[in-house]
Write a protein that binds this DNA or RNA. Structure first.
Lengths: 256, 256
DNA sequence: CTTTGCTGCGTACGTTATACGCGGAGCGTA
DNA sequence: TACGCTCCGCGTATAACGTACGCAGCAAAG
């Protein structure tokens, strides 16, 4: 409709990247705006969980009719892409090629896990959709890559390292968001503390290694209360292992 | 109803762990069985994707009425837990304390990624539910922990290392399952190869680090065709970084 | 034989996303 | 000033979904 240049972007991306802004002059002033819709949707997902986010509930919260939303959003999938773009906020400021790449990458990871902690639903959404193509998430990737800017790694390796850290952050955030609270789960049991349940199911004959872990009380610990920067937490420990492995390669490259 | 010992397990877990087997004597021989249901559900999710798995479709495939399923399965969530228990199959055989912990852990990771490749829907399901409590998934965790059995790591550290590897495997499997095929996505565009799309959106001024990666052609590569054991793939590279980091700690512990 | 408990299943309901089309509001132009 | 075009908000309707409820029949227990 708009342009027939042959290589038109999907509508969603055009909106996401700002080409599509103001050109509504004809009709009545719009009472709804895309920003208000996305903001409200994020608020619902934050407080009541992702399953509670329906178009009807969203409209109710905004004081409009359900179908009014579809004037600003093509469908629910598109709305969710907008949510994922807006929710993370700006990434930490990282210099293009910092001397302390390890410290900067660590800082980036810690702030990213905080994002997932604030908006756990991002994990569920990005688990279902295509790889990120919105400026919000790409800005985070760019910041993470900047931390590696000064290292002698090849571009492909930088990307692999960043994905490695991202995967770990996401995995840990997912686990801890399910551990600490039984929030977004409808009609879940009072949850007798994972470890206690496992203790009643696992027999040393069948799962010897797990039984050993359980006996050591690993699952009883209430991890995640202290700051996640702490290397003593599960998260900090794993992150340091990753950084150690990357540092090994960086040093080998720098020495050669 | 059955037992009032005070500490009764959730029904789902009782079925999952085998306590609940045969005690149907009264009625007619059951034409449906839990195993058949779960098997058919897995088949649907494998071929047509998770969104295509509805109770109605499942019943149609089994040649029974929709509501008949509920005689064997409490609800859809429970069915999905059964699916996640059955789909992975048995983990690789790993000795209790292998000398080559690194090789064994690597083998475990490679086989696990193959599981996720075969059943991509496991990623979506486990992203929504509680931490795994079924014997199927716990057997995998036990096998992974066995690989670390001979190392001087503390129990808590073993668990952290295993989670680290699991998170990475899941993350990579998720990415590659979305990359290679546009399968479970309804009405997705022909997908002009992620990298090509990014190239039209990313400007070096706004995303300098990403632009550099893109210029290097990192996203153009058709990764994932070769065997995932290959250290040259994204997956193999990241996995080796992890193992390097763990090895650093193992050596430090052994030397001290 | 009667009773009891389990099977499969038909019906019905509430919730979901969303296709379609109407009425009205305001700006551009005549 | 008046017309018309365009865009907004919304009411209605539909198809698919998960599943609560209760009935009919069959087989073993009494």
């Amino acid at each position: 409709m708009s342009e027939k240049t042959g290589d038109e972007l999907p509508r969603t991306l055009e909106v996401l990247w700002g080409r599509r802004a103001g050109r509504r002059t004809r009709g009545p002033a719009q009472a709804l705006s895309l920003d208000r819709i996305v903001e409200a949707a994020i608020a619902i997902a934050d407080t009541d969980g992702l399953p509670a986010l329906s178009m009807a509930r969203l409209a109710e919260r905004l004081g409009c009719a359900t179908m009014s939303l579809y004037r600003h959003v093509a469908n629910k999938d598109e709305l969710q892409m907008f949510m994922m773009d807006a929710a993370p906020g700006p990434p930490p400021d990282i210099a293009p090629a910092p001397a302390d790449w390890r410290g900067e990458l660590r800082r980036w990871a810690v702030e990213l896990v905080a994002v997932y902690h604030r908006h756990p639903w991002i994990l569920h959404l990005s688990a279902a959709g295509p790889p990120p193509m919105d400026p919000g998430q790409l800005a985070w990737m760019d910041a993470g890559l900047r931390a590696l800017g000064g290292t002698p790694l090849r571009p492909r390796e930088k990307m692999s390292v960043l994905l490695l850290v991202m995967h770990y952050v996401r995995g840990d955030a997912h686990l801890s968001s399910n551990d600490l609270r039984a929030a977004p789960s409808p009609a879940r049991e009072p949850s007798p503390a994972y470890g206690a349940l496992l203790a009643r199911l696992i027999t040393p004959e069948r799962f010897p290694a797990l039984a050993e872990i359980l006996d050591a009380g690993v699952f009883d610990e209430r991890d995640g209360e202290g700051p996640r920067t702490d290397p003593a937490t599960h998260f900090g420990f794993g992150l340091d292992r990753i950084l150690d492995g990357v540092e090994t390669l960086v040093r080998a490259r720098a020495g050669a």
